[in-house]
Write a protein that binds this DNA or RNA. Structure first.
Lengths: 344, 344
DNA sequence: ATGAAAGCGCTAACAT
DNA sequence: ATGTTAGCGCTTTCAT
């Protein structure tokens, strides 16, 4: 008990009630001010604002959630099997973009790593419980049932990276992989390279398919250019192996476009082992503009994706759906940029 | 209204009340079961459990928070200026460790990027509001007031990476940087290298200081070994410059221990430019065992930190404090491992 | 424009 | 061991 005989609150945090008392208005009016209602007299408005400042009042999230039935929380789900993705610097940029955009809203960002089916279940549960108002999904596997389940559970979803299969109503953000690959290949062509090979990504992932399509598109109709395709899996070892294979098929090749920086780094190794100079004998271009690209020797020319911007767009996609559940959004495809370094 | 005249809940989610009705017990008893109280008859226990399963009941987080005055949420604060850290693969492992450990608790992980002072303010506010029960801090700047402010605000804090200045009551987790650096240096010595240089990290960061100390300690008392120290900032360019400097001072040096993989990658470039073969002429060791280490040519021998384990320990540090606010915890220092690759 | 009051779903103290 | 009940802090009708 305080000296005036009233119970002390456990935490020192002021409540809306206290603000109302301080401002000589009812709790209802105070609430209206906090929530920006227009039906408040200028006089009351000021009194409440002053009280809020004086007391250092901040709304209680739990109490508000309880009555509004919203959580003001969005979930970023990272499939652990994709932790290469997670570990790449571009993930940091993506999250920065998300944060930037979310910081203009009352939404909190919850992070969950969902590797197992059991954890996928937890995600769905969180959605059904209303603990989460919306979900960001990162780089799905082809046949992942998660997005559809989440949508069925009633949550808006936004996906980063074009899903291979139809994913229901979930909009996505992606870089323009095809166009990026096309520019890279055209750059090699314009350099005068005429024996241009590519190392593809896995063909069950959109990024793999689209980048190969870009390579093909760049060379379509061009005469006097030899095309050469080897299959990779985005990993360095596969790039190295693919390059050896390519070299065996055509020892005179003078350019390689790899669908990932890691594969390009592998190509660099294989080329050096084969005694080829880069870029003198063979030019190499990677994709992603990852950390690795900056640290190989020679440094890699690479196709950059605007990850931070993609993060912002991703956030916008979800925010829009949150504001109006009925909105049907289209995918957002952002342009890439070719970053020239030493390998071309 | 439903046909039986009672109001329908907006969301279909069952409440504890409905569980109680279904199980023919009071809400109180149902609550006891949900919260694992022992004062429940086996009979009631089963009835409630069945009802929970049948209805698919899950507790409402907001309602619980409201009454318990806990949020069951912990916050991971990433200083954006440290986004190199964030982007490194080891961050993924750290988060995985955190998630793993937190998944055994009802704690949710909230992610916030706090670059600006304004955002630091937001973090403090979240703590004061009770929106967050505890905070993880990652790689602080020397004189960052955040940890102390948070502790003052009443939140348990756990820090990853030894802070330079005293940080108050916050325990931390770190790798044994000194011992890691010592093993690396000793490895070079045991290889027969006798002109062993080091490229240090910034000396206003614990990792920089400790790794230099490890180098010194390894060589202490050894005769016939030349020591050579150049200053770096953990970045690749600084490693390249430092190596040129080192080479100028001692053209015969036969080993370099760099306090980061990025600097080691820079060293590799400078050595190649200078016509030195690695590891034949000069052996190189980095630190962090990052993605970059696996993709340089030659691949880098590097000191690995057990990031996932560090994540788990970090979580434990916070969980312990959450359970008992009075606990005073000691720092946790985890051993490193030397990963041998092609550069030695 | 404002006040009064009814809950949101839950826990915990109290009574039995 | 179980039921009853008083709030937790807030938003939102419904009156006025």
């Amino acid at each position: 008990m305080t000296s005036d005989g009233r119970r002390t609150r456990a935490s020192g945090r002021p409540t809306l009630e206290q603000v109302a008392v301080e401002a000589n208005v009812s709790r209802g009016t105070a609430s209206r001010v906090v929530n920006g209602s227009l039906e408040v007299s200028p006089w009351a408005l000021k009194a409440v604002q002053d009280a809020i400042r004086k007391l250092g009042y901040v709304p209680n999230h739990a109490a508000r959630s309880l009555v509004t039935q919203r959580s003001d929380t969005v979930l970023l789900v990272v499939s652990e099997s994709e932790d290469r993705v997670f570990g790449e610097p571009f993930f940091a940029s993506l999250v920065r973009g998300l944060s930037l955009e979310l910081s203009t809203t009352p939404l909190q960002l919850n992070l969950i790593m969902a590797n197992t089916a059991r954890q996928h279940g937890r995600v769905e549960q969180q959605v059904r419980n209303g603990h989460v108002d919306g979900v960001f999904l990162i780089s799905l596997h082809g046949d992942d049932p998660l997005p559809r389940n989440l949508i069925d559970a009633g949550a808006p979803v936004a996906v980063i990276g074009r899903p291979m299969s139809d994913i229901g109503a979930a909009p996505y953000v992606d870089a323009d992989n095809e166009s990026g690959a096309r520019s890279a290949t055209e750059y090699l062509y314009n350099q005068g390279r005429r024996r241009i090979a590519t190392i593809t990504g896995p063909q069950d992932m959109a990024a793999g398919v689209d980048r190969l399509a870009g390579y093909r598109s760049a060379l379509r109709g061009k005469r006097g250019v030899s095309r050469l395709i080897a299959q990779g899996d985005f990993g360095q070892a596969s790039g190295e192996a693919a390059t050896r294979e390519l070299l065996a098929k055509d020892p005179t090749l003078d350019a390689i476009f790899a669908a990932s920086d890691l594969m390009a780094a592998g190509a660099l190794r294989a080329l050096r082992a084969a005694g080829r100079r880069v870029p003198d004998d063979v030019a190499v271009i990677g994709f992603d503009d990852s950390e690795v690209a900056r640290h190989t020797d020679p440094a890699l020319t690479s196709v950059r994706q605007p990850m931070q911007q993609m993060g912002r767009e991703l956030a916008k996609l979800l925010i829009t759906q949150l504001r109006d559940r009925e909105t049907k959004l289209s995918p957002v495809i952002l342009p890439t940029e070719l970053i020239i370094r030493e390998s071309t």
